[in-house]
Design a protein around this nucleic acid. Structure first.
Length: 275
DNA sequence: ACCCGTGTTCGCTG
DNA sequence: TCAGCGAACACGGG
């Protein structure tokens, strides 16, 4: 699921599901303490129970849920990790298979934090002071909120000699880019993922700033149109190069998509048109 | 059994 | 001192 587009969809869903609602009860699945902060289930629940939702925000892949109780702000910071998702059920529905936490709302709905691999995180943020949380403070500009300033991107890419694909995964460079969209953006910009960051020309940096945003906007549009079903697992691969090793390049029609490993992650690209 | 996976952190090393 | 690397986290699917 989760790179910026998926998290943006999650934020929109949560906004609709929580508007005006209060958290009646919080339940943590036994044996999943590593997800929670504070990790003691009772303390985690106590911090949130009775609070009313005020706003749902997103920065990069971080979901920022702002609540209020007795005039006191309290925040819930949620990260989906690799397999996290928020699901809405009614009180009588059985819990989804990998439900790790449940927010029972005052309208009888239940928001489940489902996460197979337990890489997700749910963190109480006292006073809803999200900016003081290190993982939030370290984030670079969010493409959707602030756009990507080519000059700033160029500056960030010049700060390290790592391959540009690896640099894009650093959340301090552009917040929200993950392994899929890094490959997709570089393909669209016709830049070889193995190039060192400082080697990119200003024109290439400009192209890349544009394609990161473009790829993410398309990802969001794809997921918000319910009639398009190929996003569902088991459906057709909606990406241009990601997970298309061995296929013909959709742009030049002559190159063959290659898979390489960079920083322990798969990268997909067309060696013929990405230079 | 083995490899792979939309993410991030931590400890070691040169 | 610190950038960069690889292991680790956890669990299912092919």
């Amino acid at each position: 699921m989760p790179e910026l587009p998926e998290v943006e969809i999650a934020a929109r869903n949560l906004r609709a599901w929580t508007a005006g609602r209060r958290i009646a009860r919080v339940e943590a699945q036994p044996g999943t303490a590593r997800i929670f902060r504070p990790s003691r289930p009772a303390a985690f629940a106590r911090a949130l129970e009775g609070a009313r939702f005020a706003a749902v925000g997103r920065r990069g892949k971080q979901l920022l849920l702002a609540l209020e109780r007795d005039g006191e702000p309290v925040g819930l910071l949620a990260h989906l990790g690799m397999t996290g998702k928020w699901l809405r059920r009614t009180a009588d529905d059985p819990a989804p298979r990998f439900s790790r936490a449940r927010l029972v709302l005052d309208d009888g709905t239940v928001l489940h934090f489902s996460d197979l691999r337990l890489f997700g995180r749910l963190r109480v943020v006292p006073g809803a002071r999200f900016d003081e949380v290190p993982e939030v403070a370290a984030l670079g500009p969010d493409p959707l909120a602030a756009g990507i300033d080519p000059a700033a991107l160029g500056e960030a890419l010049r700060r390290s000699r790592l391959p540009v694909k690896v640099r894009l995964l650093d959340q301090g460079v552009v917040a929200g880019v993950g392994n899929i969209y890094a490959s997709e953006a570089l393909f669209r910009a016709r830049i070889d993922p193995r190039r060192r960051g400082p080697s990119l020309s200003p024109a290439e940096v400009r192209r890349l700033a544009g394609t990161v945003l473009e790829a993410m906007r398309e990802g969001i549009a794809r997921q918000e149109s319910p009639e398009i079903t190929y996003v569902e697992e088991g459906g057709e691969n909606p990406f241009l190069v990601y997970a298309r090793e061995g296929e013909r390049c959709p742009r030049c029609r002559r190159g063959t998509i290659r898979r390489i490993v960079q920083a322990q992650r798969s990268t997909f690209f067309c060696p013929r048109c990405q230079r």
